[in-house]
Design a binder for these strands. Structure first.
Lengths: 142, 142
DNA sequence: TTCCATGCAAACACTTTGCACCGTG
DNA sequence: CACGGTGCAAAGTGTTTGCATGGAA
């Protein structure tokens, strides 16, 4: 039986992509970091081994996302953040006050998804969704 | 009684900002264009009058948003789009297939807002929300 | 041995900033 | 006539691309 941790090898081979150390390192970095920008991934990878190029990080993250091994969301107005697709699909709440990020299981928004589907003939991609707003702690301060 | 179309004058004065032709033109451009990127606003303004600078557009949009006269949302991975705050607060659905943008009244998501508030102590800013996904027309094609 | 993947450097898209001049209040 | 606003140019940030070399299959 296949080790789930090796799924990425199958995924890459399945679409004719080659297995390279860079791809392995970058995927591992995303899994280890939680939510990381391309820059942070680059730094993390370079800390372990020597030189990996920024363009390789961008190109690799694109491939990994196409294969469904990672996903990205926009948690700030700056660079996107990538995260593993292991575990349940989730969307993000970002507090404008304290920048805190709350991950919410997509299941919790089933009714919202349903209403968009039936009332607007639209299937939302909840794994990409980021909801900006204010958490209760920051609400009180204002 | 004040003409609602002149509210922006009050809003600017209220916070000690000056009334300038650029600010009037840029606000008018946003109202006329519907959803426009800073670049599109610039082009629209320059079509009417002569030279307005890009940095003035950025600076002015920031001021207008602070005053609540416009809002911005991220309808693509590129530049943000600004829109008028006249009318009901709405959020956006963007189809990844055809790029179509559907505006949905925030009221329609009242239950979703409610659940985020009660279950996660989080007050979402629905006017900034963009939901990516696929419309029914593009769903069939895949 | 064949191409896909990488590194490198330059180009790119969008935005921000410093500073001198301009014009509103 | 003071000080906030603007234009301009340069710099900044994040990302993409063309091309030659390198390594997986």
């Amino acid at each position: 039986m296949p080790d789930p941790a090796d799924d990425w090898r199958e995924a890459l081979r399945g679409k004719g992509y080659r297995l390279t150390p860079q791809r392995e390192l970058i995927l591992a970095a995303v899994n280890e970091l939680g939510h990381a920008t391309p820059d942070e991934v680059l730094a993390h990878v370079q800390a372990k081994v020597s030189a990996v190029n920024a363009s390789t990080v961008y190109r690799t993250l694109e491939v990994l996302e196409e294969l469904g091994l990672v996903r990205h969301a926009h948690l700030s107005d700056r660079a996107p953040t990538y995260h593993s697709t292991q575990g349940h699909t989730h969307f993000h709440l970002v507090c404008r006050g304290c920048r805190r990020v709350i991950s919410v299981d997509a299941e919790d928004a089933a009714a919202f998804v349903e209403s968009l589907t039936t009332r607007h003939a639209f299937t939302p991609d909840m794994g990409h969704l980021t909801v900006f707003g204010t958490c209760s702690d920051c609400q009180e301060e204002s």
